[in-house]
């Protein structure tokens, strides 16, 4: 993906089109050099100081240098291959699950005859898939794995974080009744307000209906919580738990039968007979031109006026 950037990470790069990967690559090379120098200097000095108590200081300096250079090299390699390590880290759950499944399959196939292998596989796959509860749980947790990758794609593709291209740390995710909830720790360059304007695009990237974001911590603005919504729970009917605390064998209360009005239809009422209780004068409302008494029963009349 090419992207035109108004500012260059380094003064000497004055090209108008920058490939993000190249930028990250340069940053990685510089970081590796820095890591080599820092590690070599610190390890070399420490080793030399320690060695100086056993030998001549000049020999100790040579010893320190001999220890420092390989260790600095290790640090350089680690930083240099960091992008690869990072990708491995991102896919750790998938790699782990695939490895476990593959190893399990190999062990199973090696130690059981063919029909037994098939039966075991059918049980292991079929039972969780057949039970609705476990199937829903599996699907929900699978979405959690997917959403973490999709969020990372959002940050890498269209949410420009900072010049070194560091991505927010996407922490754990867990299923909610409406979708998934993902906790994210932002790196410098992003804020809650930056992300709020992009929630519609995040929802698209996550194959969801909507995405919400809020702070997960009062004390740290970098710690955020994404709520990915795929389903709507507000259309469900919610029962009250109070129904369960009452005794169903409650004796019904004796209620005196109230006076049942009889004039329940429009022709049943005469014009002057019906008046609202305790009403001193007809209210002045929008349909005030109509006589108040022209409505039917008192209840209907009241609701008409409101």
């Amino acid at each position: 993906m090419s992207k035109s950037s108004p500012r260059r990470p380094f003064g000497r790069n004055t090209g108008t089109v920058t490939v993000i990967e190249a930028k990250v690559h340069r940053s990685s090379a510089r970081n590796a050099r820095l890591a080599f120098i820092l590690t070599a200097v610190i390890v070399g000095l420490l080793s030399a100081v320690v060695a100086a108590s056993y030998m001549h200081p000049i020999l100790a300096l040579f010893t320190g240098a001999a220890i420092a250079v390989p260790l600095g090299g290790v640090a350089w390699v680690l930083v240099r291959i960091w992008p690869v390590l990072r990708v491995l880290w991102w896919w750790t759950p998938e790699i782990g699950i695939t490895t476990l499944l593959g190893a399990g399959w190999v062990q199973l196939a090696n130690h059981t005859p063919g029909p037994v292998t098939l039966v075991v596989v059918a049980l292991v796959v079929g039972v969780p898939a057949a039970l609705p509860a476990s199937r829903r749980a599996l699907v929900a947790w699978t979405w959690c794995l997917i959403v973490r990758h999709r969020l990372r794609v959002c940050f890498a593709q269209f949410i420009i974080a900072n010049q070194s291209g560091s991505l927010p740390i996407i922490l754990w995710a867990k299923p909610t009744p409406v979708g998934e909830r993902v906790w994210v720790y932002l790196r410098p360059g992003l804020s809650l307000a930056d992300l709020e304007g992009r929630l519609d695009r995040i929802a698209v990237a996550c194959h969801a209906s909507a995405a919400l974001i809020e702070r997960a911590s009062d004390g740290n603005a970098a710690y955020l919580r994404f709520d990915i919504k795929r389903r709507e729970v507000l259309t469900a009917q919610v029962g009250s738990p109070l129904v369960d605390v009452i005794d169903p064998a409650t004796p019904a209360t004796d209620r005196p039968t109230p006076a049942v009005p009889t004039a329940l239809d429009l022709p049943d009422v005469d014009v002057p007979t019906i008046t609202l209780p305790a009403q001193k004068k007809p209210p002045a409302t929008a349909n005030g031109s109509k006589p108040a008494a022209s409505s039917s029963a008192p209840e209907d009349d009241i609701s008409d006026w409101i």
Binding site: V233, L234, T235, A236, Q237, V238, G239, S240, L242, V243, I246, D247, P248, T250, P251, A252, T253
Partner: peptide
């Protein structure tokens, strides 16, 4: 916050009201 209010049917209300009156 978007919420969905709990719903009590007429018979549930009557049951709770009877119990409460009791």
């Amino acid at each position: 916050r978007r919420i969905k209010v709990a719903y009590l049917s007429d018979s549930q209300i009557a049951g709770i009201a009877d119990y409460a009156a009791w």
